[in-house]
């Protein structure tokens, strides 16, 4: 990897790209949990990130929980074992999935040896702008997503390849918490890409119109 990236000055390494994606996922999850009212609003505080103000949870238990998940996600990103991360918002009482926030993670094909001078490294500011756009879009989805009156919980699912190594006692196979196709609507959000990863965001929500 390092030799491949050597010619470009500020090229992002796999490690750096992983860090960006993990960071993005952390803030996206926090933003969703705040905007969708999964956790009470006063559990969150303002943090400057990506050139804007984002909400970050202060709840220690939640923070630790997310960190544990993100650590594993980071490992999977390095090994390329994860293809999709899903944040499902579930009704606390009925256990019905209300919303699914889907983040597809695609590995960008590394450019061929000959073409690497043609593909200039993406400046970090551009990546940040793309991430900012996604986060802003998540905030703006509140305008069309159905309001959730009932108390909700969330769950984070990771779609991994069969071969990915999974810490056996920490991650377990599970139901995909899908929303029935006839009762769901989907909205595609923006995407962002580093030189190595491409993350596409999408939200599916239960709508029985």
């Amino acid at each position: 990897m390092a030799t491949k990236q050597a010619p470009t000055r500020q090229a992002i390494t796999l490690k750096g790209s992983t860090a960006i994606v993990t960071d993005f996922f952390k803030f996206a999850v926090n933003t969703i949990l705040y905007q969708r009212g999964v956790y009470p609003a006063d559990d969150f505080h303002l943090v400057k990130k990506y050139g804007q103000v984002v909400m970050l949870t202060q709840d220690l238990a939640l923070e630790n929980y997310l960190n544990k998940i993100l650590q594993q996600v980071q490992k999977w990103l390095v090994s390329g074992g994860v293809t999709q991360l899903v944040l499902a918002i579930i009704s606390k009482d009925s256990r019905v999935t209300l919303e699914r926030w889907v983040f597809d993670i695609n590995l960008q094909n590394p450019p061929a040896e000959s073409a690497d001078e043609a593909v200039a490294a993406k400046p970090e500011s551009v990546i940040q702008a793309e991430i900012r756009d996604i986060l802003k879009q998540i905030v703006s989805t509140v305008t069309f997503l159905p309001t959730m009156d009932e108390p909700t919980v969330f769950n984070i699912l990771a779609y991994t390849s069969e071969s990915a190594d999974v810490p056996a006692d920490e991650w377990v196979d599970t139901d995909p918490l899908a929303i029935e196709a006839s009762k769901s609507q989907q909205v595609k959000l923006r995407s962002f890409s580093t030189d190595i990863h491409r993350v596409e965001a999408m939200v599916a929500y239960r709508y029985e119109g």
């Binding site: 999964v38 956790y39 009470p40 559990d43 709840d59 238990a61 939640l62 929980y65 544990k68 998940i69 594993q72 293809t83 999709q84 108390p151 919980v153 969330f154 769950n155 984070i156 699912l157 990771a158 779609y159 991994t160 390849s161 069969e162 990915a164 999974v166 006692d169 920490e170 991650w171 377990v172 196979d173 599970t174 139901d175 995909p176």
Partner: peptide, 17 residues
């Protein structure tokens, strides 16, 4: 939908709000 992929969830439930 992905095939030959595992759907995994963290073993703990998220903390109560």
């Amino acid at each position: 939908l992905p095939i030959n992929k595992r759907v995994l969830a963290f073993h703990e439930a998220p903390p109560i709000p």
